[in-house]
Design a protein around this nucleic acid. Sequence first.
DNA 1: TAAAAAATTTACGTAAAAGTAAAGACAAGT
DNA 2: ACTTGTCTTTACTTTTACGTAAATTTTTTA
Lengths: 132, 132
Amino acid sequence: MDDVKEYYTITELTKEFGISTRTIRFYEDEGLIKPNRRGTTRLFRPIDRRLLQLILRAKRLGFSIAEIGEIIQMYKAPPGEAGQLRLMIKKVNEKRHALEQKRRDIEETVKELDQVEEACLGRMAELGVKRS
Amino acid sequence: MDDVKEYYTITELTKEFGISTRTIRFYEDEGLIKPNRRGTTRLFRPIDRRLLQLILRAKRLGFSIAEIGEIIQMYKAPPGEAGQLRLMIKKVNEKRHALEQKRRDIEETVKELDQVEEACLGRMAELGVKRS
DNA sequence: TAAAAAATTTACGTAAAAGTAAAGACAAGT
DNA sequence: ACTTGTCTTTACTTTTACGTAAATTTTTTA
């Protein structure tokens, strides 16, 4: 039994991901997701849910909606034409470089935090404060 | 001979970091940096430069100006009071968790990119395309 | 010391990413 | 059938993070 439902409602997804309906509809307007419809009501398939996860991950990393759009484009079926394929691989590598930069940024920032904490602990020792 | 000058002008920093004077002044307005002055002219010390580096790193990671402000607060001298010290350590850990989340997000996103690339390479093999 | 280059403040403008509000259409339970 | 709750579209508003322009010093260089 896999945890994959046929369809999700919009509010189910807002609750799962802690975002608003406005946000989800905004992503649709921006072409990031394309849920099915029954009449006017949106029906979200597992793939829409996965795309939402991807979007939110990328958002946490500071990617813009436009950049996320590029990622999602690639995420779909690979094109049939050689030039397009090479272009896509180039774009994949661009995104990879961006992610590697972010990785370095994280390491540097963590180092700074480590220093802050050490300074605090040192100061606490000086003051004879318990570290609770 | 260390590469640490006494003072930097605002345009030196804009060139080094590829940002505008408006941006730097904006960060000052937001209280992130506090350059010296000679009359009305700003004189940036090495510490201001380091703070700029920190700001830009954090920005690439998607932290808001407000969040960066919190980081910079900690970056200064540790406080003298026990409660304050504990609070600061708590905040350090919060930021660390945020960074760990980002790290996980990077790993996931890289995995997706790897899949995209593999799909492309597979498709290229099918088509008998050289990988140039 | 005069002209050119760089710096300053003030203020209005803008793009991105939603928030919020209004008003109507659907759907579901009783 | 009716009400209650959910969903929809449309449109205006807001916040963040600067861009841009104007008018004015200040500093540097000729």
